[in-house]
């Protein structure tokens, strides 16, 4: 077949809403776009373990500790599902990790903000995981099969994460005055960074057009952001807290809220490495990877000794 024919088959699949599988022909830019997006997603899951891991030893009860442990373990698992999905596109795990550790690959800007109080763990679960779920529900129908299948598994596991976050917020918001103030403070600090998670406005999003054309994404950044605000505001009201946005107002005509855009200059700064915790996060990942080197070496030596090593395909 000529390249044109291959392209027709590929376009035909997209038009019929069929999934593209690893052995199918795909345009180079589609492959590159997916590697970038899936690996960024995987890195976000792995780096996302750090701000929450920060509170495992200081969780206020045994119950909240086991819950947080289970959640952080899930995030690690999600990272692994996504790494293997990216690997089906012809990039090795070592390359993927190397791109993260050298700062060549990005991860979600949200994880460069610090978790200062226990209420932040509530806000992260409720808002950050809530926003992630909104994006991931859409991605269950993404055009690349292995990515879509990883997303189905992830979405199943993710909904407990948001609920546990909301439970923490509920306890604080209906607790003492100090606890309620702590919940409000966390909401104030996480609201705008969470809004940034959906990416820049559609008009300024360099990758959106291709992502929509190839059905990698099915909804735009602005559509998802609007849905997130509409869904979250009633939850804020239930908690008796206030969204830190003086411009937030119900718009009857569009049946949605009008709201302020996050500070996109800050967003650009954070993704280019100058957020509050970028250096700390990367240093922690590098340290964990380097400290684990002897484990990989020992496992490899042991497998060789027992003559059980299988050469990677």
């Amino acid at each position: 077949m000529e390249v044109n024919k291959f392209e027709d088959v590929f376009e035909g699949k997209l038009a019929k809403n069929e999934m593209v599988e690893p052995k199918d022909w795909m345009p180079d830019n589609y492959r590159k776009h997916l590697i970038r997006q899936i690996s960024q997603h995987a890195h976000s899951e792995i780096v996302g373990m750090l701000p929450e891991g920060n509170w495992i030893t200081r969780a206020p009860s045994l119950r909240s500790k086991v819950v947080l442990l289970a959640k952080v373990q899930d995030e690690g698992g999600h990272g692994l599902y996504l790494y293997t999905a990216a690997e089906t596109l012809g990039i090795s795990r070592d390359e993927l990790l190397d791109n993260l550790h050298t700062g060549k690959a990005k991860y979600s800007s949200i994880f460069n903000y610090p978790t200062l109080t226990w209420a932040d763990i509530g806000a992260v679960g409720w808002l950050v995981d809530g926003a992630a779920i909104m994006n991931q529900v859409m991605l269950q129908r993404t055009s690349y099969g292995p990515y879509a299948r990883a997303m189905v598994r992830i979405c199943k596991e993710e909904s407990f994460h948001q609920r546990q976050g909301f439970e923490i917020m509920t306890r604080l918001a209906f607790g003492t005055e100090d606890q309620k103030a702590m919940a409000q403070d966390a909401l104030n600090r996480w609201w705008y960074p969470t809004m940034m998670m959906f990416g820049p406005p559609d008009a300024e999003s360099p990758n959106s057009e291709n992502a929509m054309k190839w059905r990698i994404k099915r909804e735009t950044n602005d559509q998802l952001r609007q849905r997130f605000v509409d869904q979250t505001v009633p939850q804020v009201q239930y908690l008796g807290l206030t969204v830190p946005d003086a411009n937030l107002k119900w718009n009857e005509a569009k049946k949605g809220y009008d709201f302020s855009e996050p500070n996109w200059v800050e967003f650009k700064n954070v993704i280019s490495g100058n957020g509050p915790c970028n250096k700390e996060r990367l240093a922690a990942r590098n340290k964990a990877h380097n400290d684990g080197a002897w484990v990989r070496e020992a496992a490899q030596a042991f497998a060789k000794k027992r003559n059980e090593i299988y050469v990677a395909a």
Partner: peptide
């Protein structure tokens, strides 16, 4: 140096077929 890739199949309940669920790296 992550070890080779393995494909993982799960049987949900005794008597049911094994279904592919994903892959992972392991040395043995």
């Amino acid at each position: 140096n992550q070890g080779p890739v393995w494909e993982i199949f799960l049987q949900k309940k005794a008597g049911q077929p094994f279904v592919h669920c994903g892959s992972l790296h392991a040395f043995d």
